[in-house]
Amino acid sequence: MSDITLTDGVYVRPEFVHKSLGAAGHGEVERRLTWFERISNVEPLRKFSVLILVIVIWQLYTTIWDVHELMFPTFSDTFVALIDSVVNGGLLENVWNSISVLLKGYAIGICIAAVLVVLGVTTRFGDDLLTTLTAMLNPLPAIALLPMAMIWFGLGEDAIIFTLLHSIIWPVALNTHVGFKSVSETLRAVGQNYNLRGVMFIAKILVPAAFPAILTGLRIGWAFAWRTLIAAELVFGGQVQDTSGQLGAEGSNSGGLGWIIFQNQMENQTPYVFAGLFTVIIVGIVIENFVFRNLEDRTVRRWGMQQA
């Protein structure tokens, strides 16, 4: 920058004239991507290969280092165990047991949450009751109530459903209530113009307007319930073993995925434990990405309340 000269108290820059623009003249303006680049731009393919890679590393690690099957089974062993427990071990039956308990709890929980929220929306006392209860009970892990539930309802499905209820009601009620409160005055006024009152007002104005929040609540409720269910089945496993000294005592439990995991671990059949974990993952993925995604597509996305 030493070219800048000071003339009459003013800085004057030298004039520049570019002879040519060199590189830009013969650079590649357009170039076809190589096959490799094009393939690696396909996202599902990339993620799938990551998955394959992880599996290959797992398989290699366990076979080459000769890790004991008891500690960390190979992928192939896990796969064989999975097939075996589906075909012979009644895995699907246990999955169904877990899911049916979950569904019962979920349905009852949503009904109770709905009653609480309706009360909370229509009366000020209900509102206070709901906020106090959710503030108190939402931070309490549902599983902590299991010992009490076992005292009140005995070892069995009822105790699990009671705990599940607790894990579902509060997140659903909390989110729905907050969602209802933030429905805009305009929409409320529309409802009043149509002379909607009470339950009709809630069903036709508040529920559709607050549906994203309700859906969030349902999702969180599902996540907590699923975790609580598995944990409850694990505790049950311990309890049954603790009291009767024998595993899988008939009639003392309803079975289920958590139970299988516990039982197989006790019998040191680690591949079967892994198979159980796989099933838990698959059920979780199916419900989150299939059930809730579909529900979202059909409601909030279709209504234009949320972009893809």
């Binding site: 990551v50 998955l51 598995i230 944990a231 995925l257 516990f262 671990q265 680690t270 979780g284 419900i287």
Partner: peptide
């Protein structure tokens, strides 16, 4: 990025508590 999203998609739906029997083993 791919690794992270694949792993989260896999492990996010898995209740941590179900890993407890394995953790006790390890």
């Amino acid at each position: 990025s791919d690794f992270l999203s694949t792993m989260t998609a896999m492990f996010q739906p898995l209740p941590a508590i179900s890993l407890l029997p394995l953790a006790i083993l390890w």
